[in-house]
Amino acid sequence: MRVGVVTFPGSNCDYDLYKAAQQVGADVEFIWHRQKNLDGYDVVMLPGGFSYGDYLRAGAIARISPVMEDIVGFAENGGPVLGICNGFQILCEAGLLPGALIRNVSLRFESRDVHMLVEQTETPFTSEYQKGQILRIPIAHGEGNYEADGQLLEQLEAEGRIVFRYVNRGGEMTEEANPNGSRNSIAGLTNESGNVLGMMPHPERAMEEVLGSVDGMGVFLSLAANLSTVVL
């Protein structure tokens, strides 16, 4: 699997993503935000951080970064794109994912472990998880409150595009378990064709026992399992 991790000015989880992909055996490269050619990558990852300082609005400036045009093309051709945290925000701003991420209801940055439920395993990002599995994974964001109108939410639910949902330890959706006020407790969702996933929690931070959890590995193992067989 050949992975490209995009670095925007202000990305700060690019190195973490790089190491996570490497851990599952991927061949990883950084993609500078001015790079124009994405040929040869099996998957493109947009890391967390504060691209362009998150000035104006999280992800709003990164969206018009030179590399984004090609990422849109890559996704439209069915290429898998994973956006984590700021990467998720950029994907929403770029229109690759519907809805928007607004300020957390607490109006504060929220950094801690959350539990999330795996609802969809028929995606290239989650096939190695069990449906209904509860993961413990860190979050760290100020704008992770997923906002969408009623019609869109209905559509997302009906099409089974909500991949991860915030729950408590017992797997119940509760207000306390929702760290940012997201609609329908949405922690991660895909586009219509299922090849673009955006999520606020950081699976790359839950890859080793010494860091407190290995529950994030499934995302990278799933990609490796689904993409290693691709013949270039």
């Binding site: 700060n12 973490d16 504060r108 940055f109 929220e110 801690r112 931070r205 890859m207």
Partner: peptide
């Protein structure tokens, strides 16, 4: 909880 404590893994 307002500080990122896990970045840089």
């Amino acid at each position: 909880h307002q500080y990122d404590t896990t970045v840089r893994t």
